[in-house]
Design a binder for these strands. Structure first.
Length: 334
DNA sequence: GATCCACAGGAATCCTCGGGGT
DNA sequence: ACCCCGAGGATTCCTGTGGATC
């Protein structure tokens, strides 16, 4: 049934991207100056999750690498590397300048300094989930590095640009903004068809089955591909040679919670507890939440810290807050 | 309308961790 | 073995806000 499991991962970047032609050409036009050794303007890709931002960015950069002899590139997920130090380290790492940098004893300023001394070929850095970057000032530092250009990726425009100060804003205001909309049902089916062709035996699933998957995914390619993968696995287990509607329906809730799990895994234990408490109730105020939290955990942090955690959870789109001051309540998203 | 209360979130400060230098 | 340093998390302190109460 499964002939190539790798292409059933949503992180897999295909050589050939049939969907999103407008976005691809907009981005590659923007990056074109590197082919002449010049520095492109920074670009900013935004839109809902599973809309292909990361995939298109990586794909486009990969295409460039094949055509440009001298080009450095790096991909950084700012959720995983959310401090200025970690992000800088990654960026320096790709140009091989980190051998004597130590996590605790090298000041961040020195990393910036070292990056300023960069004198190599054009360098494209993809900063994914850039809204999760704690210290956005560092984008200003990146902007001033010779031969370094950035591709920024985030869900919402305002998450990135609202907390810039004027200086940073005026610099990055000019960046090329490319909006990604949710995939339509037909586009999702096209994406899935490719994956089926590359990764499954012929006839493993009908077009009608792909439409059913696309329907469950509601425009999110990550969910769609996850569904296809889990359905194929399930079919293998059941030793059937076709992915039926029943198989698809059976893996829907499992797949969706699997994807949600991936985000909650990145939370600290205390954030996890707060998130669980909020999901257990449909809405809860700050006072009740804090006392419930104190009962659950043996070494509770202060109220202030809880508020920091709560705003983090909001940034991650796991919870929403409604109402002001005394009447504010928190509830889980989705 | 004045006052109180519960809360949000900014800023300064404290605490802890882990590696380097001596 | 000891101290020192910087980062990042947590805490303390604070101001601002808006509904509740008298």
């Amino acid at each position: 049934m499964i002939t190539n499991a790798r292409v059933l991962q949503s992180e897999f970047v295909p050589n050939d991207v049939k969907h999103r032609p407008a976005e691809v050409s907009h981005l590659s036009d923007t990056l074109r100056p590197v082919t002449n050794g010049n520095r492109p303007e920074p670009s900013f890709l935004y839109g809902p999750s599973g809309a292909g931002k990361t995939c298109i960015a990586r794909h486009t950069v990969e295409q460039l690498r094949e055509n440009v002899v001298d080009l450095n590139t790096q991909y950084v997920n700012c959720w995983e590397e959310h401090t200025a130090f970690q992000t800088l380290y990654r960026v320096l790492d790709a140009v091989g300048n980190t051998h004597d940098i130590h996590r605790r004893s090298t000041p961040t300023d020195e990393l910036v300094q070292r990056l300023r001394e960069y004198d190599g070929p054009q360098y494209i850095v993809i900063l994914d989930e850039v809204d999760q970057l704690e210290d956005k000032e560092i984008l200003y530092d990146f902007y001033r590095i010779r031969n370094l250009s950035m591709i920024l990726i985030a869900n919402r425009e305002e998450d990135v640009f609202s907390d810039f100060d004027g200086r940073l804003n005026s610099r990055l205001q000019t960046c090329i903004r490319i909006r990604f909309n949710q995939y339509s049902l037909d586009q999702l089916v096209t994406i899935l068809e490719d994956r089926v062709q590359w990764g499954l035996e012929q006839g493993a699933i009908e077009t009608q089955g792909l439409e059913r998957i696309a329907d469950h995914a509601a425009g999110d390619a990550r969910i769609a591909i996850g569904l296809l993968r889990n359905a194929a696995r399930q079919a293998v287990q059941q030793q059937t040679e076709q992915i039926t509607d029943d198989v698809i329906d059976a893996v829907v809730s499992e797949t969706k919670s699997e994807i949600r799990q991936k985000t909650t895994d990145k939370l600290t234990p205390h954030q996890q507890v707060l998130y669980d408490l909020i999901t257990e109730t449909d809405r809860i105020g700050a006072g009740n939440l804090y006392s419930a939290y104190c009962e659950t955990v043996e070494d509770p942090k202060t109220r202030r810290t809880m508020r920091n955690h709560l705003s983090k959870l909001q940034q991650y789109n796991l919870i929403t807050a409604s109402g002001n001051t005394r009447n504010r309540t928190y509830s889980a998203c989705g």
